[in-house]
């Protein structure tokens, strides 16, 4: 009976020390002691992030073969390649928390894992490649700039590096939008249609409203997150509205107005029914995205087996030689 009590006392001393370090702004490193809840929350966030990068390759990959100029084709390939790189990088980050990449992949493939809801929307025109870069990467940057100050060291460092590339993607996306905005009437119409379609799902990327966000309080206490969903969403809207105006776009929100007293762009109510529907797997492309990942995984099984078999043979022959 005494032992659990001691263990409990030890644990609360450890938690106190841990929380003191967080409060002092220290970063937590893989070998440091951390509460199990902290570890779990980080695995959840980091794996969702990694999955989002990997699934996010699909909607943009959808337009690589149809990019209308060689320069755009190359930059889109490079962008999708960067996303694969980010996915790999963050999966490696989760390994520092004792999770195997294959385990996370299994969770993605069987539909247990979450990823950013935005990638469950279809890409329907070339303009989407501009608007996704501008709004979706733009929203990701707002999130990730804050995450670069997260308390877990490996994740924070990954974010610093990833943010640099995302900034490049966002500029590239905005440049596609600006080019279309200055183009033919058909190009302008294509752009406006894409903005109308993607604007609200982009706002949903910041997650549920603070009043309805189950993980927020704990994440903020441990400085995994540094700002609430609603704070980040507002920051994104404030940054983005002037950019839309600059290229002559109208955002699809009749309630959008500038509030002099707060300095904020006030916006209308998000359709939370749609948001939760997509989160629960009933978005327009949830099934297609998961099916595509599963197909790629199944089609690649023989390749992975062959690579492993060959590596094993090499290993054996080098052992024999030695």
């Amino acid at each position: 009976m005494e032992q659990p009590i001691t263990a409990q006392a030890d644990e609360s001393a450890l938690v106190a020390a841990f929380e003191a370090r967080i409060a002092a702004g220290e970063s937590i490193e893989p070998k440091d002691w951390m509460p199990e809840r902290y570890r779990k929350q980080l695995v959840r966030m980091m794996s969702q992030h990694a999955h989002s990068e990997v699934v996010g390759m699909l909607p943009e990959g959808n337009w690589i073969t149809r990019a209308p100029s060689l320069r755009r084709k190359m930059s889109l390939i490079a962008k999708v390649q960067d996303e694969a790189g980010h996915g790999l990088y963050i999966y490696c980050g989760t390994e520092t928390l004792g999770v195997d990449r294959h385990e996370l992949l299994e969770q993605l493939l069987d539909g247990r894992a979450k990823y950013s809801s935005i990638f469950n929307y279809p890409t329907l025109s070339w303009a989407d490649m501009g608007v996704i870069g501008w709004l979706v990467d733009g929203a990701a940057i707002v999130n990730q700039t804050i995450l670069a100050k997260t308390s877990y060291g490996p994740y924070a460092r990954a974010m610093v590096r990833i943010c640099k590339e995302e900034n490049f993607h966002k500029r590239q996306g905005y440049e596609i939008c600006a080019t279309l905005a200055n183009g033919t009437p058909a190009q302008r119409a294509m752009l406006q249609e894409a903005v109308d379609r993607i604007w609200w799902p982009a706002l949903m990327m910041f997650g549920p409203s603070d009043t309805d966000s189950p993980n927020s309080a704990e994440l903020l206490k441990w400085r995994v997150k540094r700002k609430t969903n609603d704070e980040l969403r507002q920051r994104f809207v404030n940054l983005t509205v002037p950019q839309a105006i600059a290229i002559g776009l109208t955002l699809p929100d009749p309630d959008l107005r500038f509030d002099e007293s707060t300095g904020n762009w006030e916006f209308g109510e998000i359709d939370w029914t749609e948001f939760f529907q997509v989160i629960k797997g009933e978005g327009p492309c949830n099934r297609e995205r998961l099916a595509a990942r599963n197909q790629a995984h199944a089609d690649g099984a023989w390749v992975r087996e062959a690579a492993a078999a060959h590596a094993a043979k090499q290993q054996r022959s080098s052992t024999q030689a030695a």
């Binding site: 990997v54 390759m57 073969t65 790189g85 790999l88 790629a296 690649g300």
Partner: peptide, 20 residues
Amino acid sequence: SEWCGHGPILEEDIAVANLA
């Protein structure tokens, strides 16, 4: 480039994109 996002392993998605 048709392989982008559909490769057998993530590392190969990166490599094939690089070739393309």
